[in-house]
Simulated scan of single mutants.
Amino acid sequence: MNPMAAVKAYQAIQGAGAAGPTGGVGGAQGPGFGELLQSVMNDTTQQTRAAETQMNMAVQGQGSLIDVVTAVSSAEASLETVIAVRDQVIQAYQEIMRMPI
């Protein structure tokens, strides 16, 4: 997932949870948090596989080095996004666990 896709996903979530004019939650329901995470993981997996495919083609002499570098950079950015989200989820969980009952 590239950074722009992450921003668009974040904006979609923010728009889905916005309060309507009556003070309630808006009628348009966006994807759930679990669905969003599943989508991000699927995108990351696809980009990693694309990078592996480009590397295999380059090793066989059928691909260009620029395509390999681009695919690997995209996969790396996706992985960094997933790691950042994971770190934030863990931090939020730890904050919840520190709350007094």
Rank of each mutant, 00 (worst) to 15 (best):
47 Q>M: 12
35 E>K: 05
98 R>V: 08
88 Q>M: 08
44 T>N: 01
67 D>Y: 10
69 V>G: 00
14 Q>S: 14
96 I>F: 09
29 Q>D: 12
73 S>E: 05
78 S>N: 06
17 G>H: 11
7 V>F: 15
43 D>V: 05
91 Q>P: 05
41 M>R: 04
54 Q>C: 13
6 A>Y: 04
88 Q>Y: 09
92 A>G: 07
48 T>P: 01
66 I>P: 05
88 Q>H: 10
28 A>S: 09
58 A>Q: 11
43 D>A: 13
8 K>H: 13
74 S>C: 02
88 Q>D: 14
40 V>K: 01
52 E>I: 01
6 A>K: 06
45 T>G: 03
100 P>M: 05
62 Q>K: 14
98 R>D: 12
37 L>N: 00
67 D>R: 06
91 Q>S: 13
54 Q>E: 13
8 K>Y: 10
55 M>G: 07
41 M>W: 03
96 I>G: 09
24 G>E: 07
77 A>P: 09
31 P>V: 13
91 Q>W: 02
82 V>K: 02
13 I>T: 12
4 M>I: 15
60 Q>V: 04
90 I>S: 06
31 P>C: 07
95 E>P: 02
82 V>R: 01
48 T>I: 01
56 N>E: 09
55 M>R: 06
99 M>A: 15
87 D>A: 10
68 V>P: 03
44 T>M: 01
33 F>P: 14
16 A>G: 15
11 Q>N: 14
17 G>C: 09
46 Q>W: 02
71 A>H: 04
4 M>V: 15
31 P>I: 12
23 G>T: 02
73 S>I: 00
52 E>P: 04
31 P>R: 05
34 G>K: 00
72 V>K: 00
8 K>M: 12
20 G>N: 11
73 S>L: 02
87 D>G: 12
80 E>C: 01
